[in-house]
């Protein structure tokens, strides 16, 4: 403990804020890194079809492509509104 430590401000340093922001951002961007470019269009067209039958919200659908060594999985997740049942 040095003399100078007594004057240090205790709030989070800007470097630790930077690290946290980067970790979140990089993890998010990596999840999109390998997705094919047609996914956004696929998502839009699926939404249009579903909207013909069910009144779903714009963000009620997520489309994700996951890859591991053995297989690729296209995951489509649609959240239906409560009252449609």
């Amino acid at each position: 403990m040095s003399l100078l430590d007594y004057f240090k401000i205790t709030k989070a340093s800007s470097a630790s804020v930077a690290k946290e922001r980067l970790q979140i951002l990089v993890a998010h961007e990596r999840s999109f890194k390998n997705q094919p470019s047609y996914l956004p269009q696929l998502q839009k067209e699926l939404l249009d079809v579903i909207k013909k039958y069910v009144n779903v919200e714009q963000n009620a659908i997520t489309v994700r492509l996951e890859q591991d060594e053995h297989q690729e999985t296209l995951e489509v997740n649609i959240v239906l509104p409560e009252k449609s049942r």
Partner: peptide, 8 residues
């Protein structure tokens, strides 16, 4: 604490 470290 003004700059990201090598480890960061």
């Amino acid at each position: 604490g003004e700059m990201l470290s090598v480890a960061d």
